[in-house]
Design a protein around this nucleic acid. Sequence first.
DNA 1: ACGATATGAATGAATG
DNA 2: CATTCATTCATATCGT
Lengths: 218, 218
Amino acid sequence: METHQQQQNQQAPNDIQDSSSGGSGKGSFLCRQSSTRWTPTTDQIRILKDLYYNNGVRSPSADQIQRISARLRQYGKIEGKNVFYWFQNHKARERQKKRFNTSTTDHHHHVPLQRPTNITLANNKFPTNINSGCYSPSSPSSTGVLTVGQIGNNGYGSITMEKSFRDCSISACGSSTASASESLSHNFGWVGIDPAYSSSYAFFEPKRFIDGIHEEGQ
Amino acid sequence: METHQQQQNQQAPNDIQDSSSGGSGKGSFLCRQSSTRWTPTTDQIRILKDLYYNNGVRSPSADQIQRISARLRQYGKIEGKNVFYWFQNHKARERQKKRFNTSTTDHHHHVPLQRPTNITLANNKFPTNINSGCYSPSSPSSTGVLTVGQIGNNGYGSITMEKSFRDCSISACGSSTASASESLSHNFGWVGIDPAYSSSYAFFEPKRFIDGIHEEGQ
DNA sequence: ACGATATGAATGAATG
DNA sequence: CATTCATTCATATCGT
């Protein structure tokens, strides 16, 4: 996934989108990214993954999407549909990977995901790991937060998303290693099945409670 | 693809590429990620193409992917994702190339093919027809895949002008539509779930955000 | 050695 | 939710 994370278009929290004058890119390629496709910033990815893995958000409702996108907007241009698609894709691909590498006769009974007390940062499952950490995605700042305390706990100490104010205090909740968050989650690559994340039930998922729990344990 | 046909020799079926197939490897001494990406052996490619052209395999299902990768494994290290990506890419590139010469008889259809980058797609490697005999189905001899000749060679004569209208103009409006519900829900905060109200939208489409962009009806 | 090309890998966006 | 398409990045390989 974010093995390399070619993120160069770091839109300011403002709303710039076509600032081609910047030219501060790595110079690898173009800077004109006025394309139609959303290019998530590192911070946005970090938060999205935090929601996904640490908070168990899988299919956020319209409400949540609005809130999430509002929060992510301070890190770059984003729309609700981007958030929607992101979760859809992330979930689908996680499943797909497993599908490729598991036998069809083994659908029932899979290992329940364990609850890691700390993030598994480096699992060298296979020599052929897709990992290629040689690329450093020029993380702007906040490098190496690495708060490996109680990440997925249900104590609720992470996000603090407000309702009306998009200011929020998110404070990046030390969920994962900041800059390493990308390289962190791609560990469960195509062969490694387990996402080293605990999906503690989201405390803010209405549907979870009223609509019945869908599958989430992997 | 065929043009290139890099003959990087076939690694031992049971061994990973030593990263020195060409001789002076890039010296991956301190970095263990020598195998950054899968390098298919000639046998693997042969079989993959056979499946593609002679058997019409285009988008193998997860089940097929497992089976294919299992079979190819005897010719070299391979994973399910490799097979998956191979077919994806092969199909996509073939279509991409075909999209040029098949200019749809110069209709008004202004296909957005511009490439912001300078790399442009100036590959004239496959000007007219990508194949029509390009691939020689020399009997695999070991897999019994029913090598019939050139049935699937151009079996999919269907041009590639199915749906190419994706330029669109995704209006940036987005989030305003669904914000109606949001304005209401923010009263309760999002930790406090209100059962009496929370199940408004179970599922929704990103259309809600973008509000009518694709009108591919006719 | 370098630059161009080919192609593996990744992912946003859509559709069924 | 699964499948697919398009686009782009990264890199292996080849040509000069």
